[in-house]
Design a protein around this nucleic acid. Structure first.
Length: 619
RNA sequence: GGGGGCGUAGCUCAAUUGGUUAGAGCACCGGCCUGUCACGCCGGAGGUUGCGAGUUCGAAUCUCGUCGCCCUCGCCA
């Protein structure tokens, strides 16, 4: 079957023998197509009734399809069509045929087709609609719960369809880009082996192997590495990943990655290749030029100055080390933390002296959520310190003002803890909050940065183990490989890896690394992570085997497709960019998944469920 | 698992803070209307106030429990 460029079947291709389910009329144009050039043409349009205005004699409907809206007019002279129009209600699906005419009543500047209308001579109801719970035009005002339950109606509005279109274009541009660079798109399994590291797995019971389970992939990491061992050299995939953790505004348990991997490359090759993709994406979709190259920042610098490994560089307000200065005071909170190996840092809040006690208290409460004991503050007024811990800091006033570049009217917030990481976390979060609250962020600003030189591992106090910062397959920097044999805490903590994250406006868009391609090194890393030989063999034996049979040096990256689309569509809600998203309880309000299953189904899967008793309740 | 917010007609909201028969706009139904574009006018129907207990002469309102949705901490190699 041939289609015209606009996706509409030409009349010549229409089926010669339409059955009762087949519309009698095939559309010739979409609803955002007719202009004054078309005056006098007989056209057929189809779509949804967006609105109707029945003036008794003459009747109007706004006909909507995914491309736009065209006004249709029904005159009494076209008796059948006019009669049919009386019964039309919002969201009915109809087709009409008529002549494209100039508007008698004047143009409607709000519509792209506003200069014309179609005088309907024939009309057909393709499907009448039950009274909808809401109409697409109103969806912006409707609660999200209702919109999710009736996702297909929410989808009909221009904004939703535009997001879906943008998402499609993003995926298409990605595919084209990697294709041109010689990458193969390769599918990897969804039914996988559960791996010990990382997030909680979604499990799928095996029917054929009683009592055993598959896990849905958290990412195709191991498979793509094995593709490299298999000689693919350049792999990519747009792939669904699953992590059974609580969702957030920018996180779903089920999400999509652009995943890629390449052989015989170093970190720079991977960064350059992928930067090119991102650059093209932003140019094509957002019309924005990204700096070339995107600047790099070390993990250490990001933590020191921004308290985060995904710094938002759209505003300043850096973390300032005032440990030396404040160590000269008698303030026990500071001296105690410094004596215990901690640091004291400050952020200068421009104009923050205006804040009330209530407001600074709220900041302290905020800081406590991230592990702070409190949030010491002081204000600069008339060249002197005032309120808060001013009396303790008074002896070092000049030094403190010099160290922070503080001016009259500023507020200083201090982060203090025996653990520098806590100070960074608290002030990093506070910085971002204040940046938003104080309106320091320019709209339309895109601040890109690659974060590099990550530590390979960090010590987890809770489990008393080393944990991968990235994942267990990340290669240490070549000069640090010898340190893998060390037992010294400091030496191990100083191992850097060839890992990199791409950060946009304080949000991590993607991350990757050069991988370990030698089975002996991989074995050592597993050992360091507390995965002993036996477990490593049981859980990752196939990978170690694969690496032992000649693996090329390789590395790659994965981008969060959902987040990329969020940025391009200017939304902070990940559900906006997913066609059929889930709620915070992992429910799909439209299909009502998850649901109970039959006993017979469970039996087949060798399952018995134990559900905690709940008190009797309502709905 | 913790903290916070929300839940009243199909939708968006109100209800003088515990007091008559829970209201309005939109949508829906009926009628009128020949140039509207948020069409207009007249009329009508529509409620388990999420659910369940409790307090009270009386509960949308107060208490407890529970369910759902949103934000968030934990979690997310």
């Amino acid at each position: 079957m041939r289609f015209l460029e606009n996706g509409i079947m030409p009349r010549s291709a229409q089926t010669p023998n339409p059955g009762p389910q087949t519309p009698k009329m095939q559309r010739t144009h979409h609803c955002n197509e007719l202009r004054k050039d078309h005056l006098g043409q007989t056209v057929t349009l189809a779509g949804w009734v967006n609105n109707y205005r029945d003036l008794g004699g003459v009747r109007f409907i706004d006909l909507r399809d995914r491309e736009g809206i065209t006004q249709i007019v029904f005159h009494p002279e076209s008796k059948d069509a006019h009669a049919l129009a009386q019964k039309l209600r919002r969201e009915d699906v109809i087709a009409i045929t008529g002549k494209c005419i100039d508007r008698e009543g004047g143009a409607n500047p709000k519509l792209e087709t506003g200069e014309i209308e179609v005088d309907a001579t024939f009309a057909e109801v393709l499907a009448d609609a039950a009274n909808p719970p809401f109409i697409p035009d109103e969806a912006e005002k409707v609660g999200e719960e209702t919109r999710l339950r009736y996702r297909y109606i929410d989808m009909r509005r221009a904004r939703s369809l535009n997001i879906l279109k943008t998402r499609h274009r993003v995926a298409k541009l990605m595919r084209d880009y990697y294709d041109e660079q010689g990458f193969y798109e390769i599918e990897t399994p969804f039914l996988c082996r559960s791996t010990p590291e990382g997030a909680r797995d979604f499990l799928v019971p095996s029917r054929l192997q009683a009592g055993e389970f598959y896990a849905l992939p958290q990412s195709p990491q191991i498979f793509k590495q094995i593709c490299m061992v298999g000689g693919v050299e350049k792999y990519f995939q747009i792939v669904r990943c699953f992590r059974d953790e609580d969702p957030r505004a920018d996180r779903q348990a089920e999400f999509t990655q652009l995943d890629m991997e390449m052989s015989f490359v170093d970190q720079n090759d991977v960064i350059t290749t992928n930067e090119g993709m991102i650059r093209q994406l932003w140019k094509e979709v957002a019309g924005v030029e990204i700096p070339n190259p995107i600047p790099h920042m070390t993990y250490a610098h990001a933590m020191e100055k921004y308290g985060s490994d995904r710094p938002d560089l759209r505003f300043g307000m850096q973390l300032l080390d005032v440990t030396d200065a404040v160590s000269k005071t008698d303030f026990k909170v500071f001296s105690g933390a410094i004596a215990a190996g901690g640091v004291v840092k400050a952020i200068r809040v421009p104009g923050g002296a205006k804040m009330s006690r209530k407001e600074t208290d709220a900041l302290a409460e905020f800081a406590k959520e991230f592990g702070a004991g409190g949030l010491p503050t002081t204000k600069i007024e008339g060249g002197k310190l005032a309120t808060g811990i001013a009396k303790f800091m008074e002896p070092i006033t000049d030094e403190l003002i010099a160290a922070t570049d503080a001016e009259d009217g500023d507020l200083l917030c201090f982060g203090v803890d025996a653990k520098p990481a806590t100070v960074h976390r608290v002030l990093g979060e506070l910085r971002v909050k204040l940046g938003h609250d104080l309106g320091l962020i320019k709209e339309g600003d895109w601040q890109w940065v690659w974060i590099v030189d990550f530590p390979m591992v960090e010590w987890d106090d809770k489990t008393k183990r080393w944990k991968s910062l990235h994942h267990p397959f990340t290669a240490p920097k070549p000069e640090d490989i010898d340190k893998l044999d060390s037992t010294d805490h400091g030496t191990i903590a100083s191992i850097k890896s060839n890992a990199y994250d791409l950060v946009l406006n304080g949000s991590e868009l993607g991350g990757g690394s050069i991988r370990i391609h030698r089975s002996d090194v991989q074995g050592k890393v597993f050992k360091l992570l507390g995965i002993d030989d036996e477990e490593a063999k049981a859980k990752f034996g196939f990978l170690l085997d694969a690496l032992s049979y000649g693996a090329p040096p390789h590395g790659g990256i994965a981008f969060g497709l959902d987040r990329i689309v969020m940025h391009l569509c200017n939304t902070t809600n990940i559900r906006d960019v997913i066609a059929f998203p889930k709620t915070q309880n992992g429910a799909d309000l439209m299909t009502e998944a998850p649901s109970p299953v039959d006993e017979a189904q469970k039996k087949e899967l060798h399952l018995r469920t134990v559900v905690p008793q709940k008190a009797p309740a309502g709905s």
